[in-house]
């Protein structure tokens, strides 16, 4: 999503690095106070992106099942006072606090990841990944090629999704039944969709390769970029600010070890 907020302006590389550190710290949170610090940080980041909070809630919808499942799993693992018991299942105070802890943890993690994808264009992202992985080329890893593949994949996913839809409609119009039957019948019913999809992907790949050749594509050699990523004051501010937050998390962990 285009925008001109503070977070939008940050260098994509800085955003990726900070996200990684953020993930590490989320798993370093031992108690509710440090988690509260992280949550406050998350809310701040979201507010800074100036993107409606509803969008972030929608991003949670995608992983709702995972949130609920892990939450429930954690609900029944815990010590403390037993509140309710039935057969082998015990509900404890520790379990309930685990439940909330895990749900909050996953939710804010997802929201901050969304903040990255919402404020960074796919090309900036792949570009940043390419540059961050650059040192790997020392070990003969084809970093540029990997990034190029990501760019092309991102470009063609919507194209192929649309194509899948078209082919499915065409086969349905010939009476293909994709909605009923057992698992084997359903897998078999996919063949008339998958084969044309493969054929068309190969055709597209062929065309694309030719189009790239026409535009003098020659791998990463002597390549320049229109948009150059550069770290700026914005990134420095973000870095300092995050550092303060993370120190806060460590301190909270140390001083309130048992506040669970």
């Amino acid at each position: 999503m285009p925008g001109k907020s503070f977070i939008h302006k940050m260098d994509a590389r800085a955003k990726i690095l900070l996200l990684i550190v953020y993930i590490v710290f989320i798993f370093l949170c031992y108690n509710f106070i440090s988690l509260a610090v992280m949550t406050a940080f998350t809310v701040l980041v979201i507010a800074l992106t100036k993107i409606s909070f509803i969008k972030y809630l929608k991003s949670l919808k995608v992983i709702l099942v995972i949130i609920i499942l892990t939450g429930i799993l954690n609900l029944f693992y815990g010590s403390g006072e037993v509140l309710w018991e039935w057969w082998m299942i015990k509900l404890t105070t520790g379990g309930i606090s685990n439940y909330f802890f895990v749900i909050i943890r996953i939710s804010i993690l997802m929201m901050v990841s969304s903040a990255l994808t919402y404020t960074t264009s796919p090309t900036d992202l792949t570009d940043a990944i390419e540059r961050l992985l650059k040192p790997l080329s020392f070990f003969h890893v084809q970093v540029h090629e990997i990034a190029m593949m990501m760019t092309i994949a991102l470009r063609f996913i919507p194209v192929l999704l649309e194509e899948t839809d078209k082919i499915m409609n065409a086969q349905k119009a010939r009476g293909a039944d994709m909605e009923s039957g057992n698992i084997f019948q359903r897998v078999k019913a996919l063949i008339p969709v998958l084969i044309p999809l493969f054929v068309s992907s190969f055709r597209r790949a062929n065309d694309l390769a030719m189009a790239m050749e026409c535009r003098c594509y020659n791998g990463g050699k002597n390549r320049t970029r229109m948009k150059i990523l550069h770290y700026s004051v914005t990134d420095l501010i973000a870095l300092v600010f995050s550092a303060v937050m993370f120190v806060g998390v460590i301190l909270c962990n140390l001083y309130f070890p048992n506040f669970v």
Binding site: I167, K172, A173, G175
Partner: peptide, 19 residues
């Protein structure tokens, strides 16, 4: 499905449905 047998539909670029 029976309606689709009564009303045959040829889409644009139908050759992409061959399998």
């Amino acid at each position: 499905r029976e309606v689709r047998f009564k009303v045959g539909m040829v889409f644009q670029y139908p050759e992409y449905q061959l399998f």
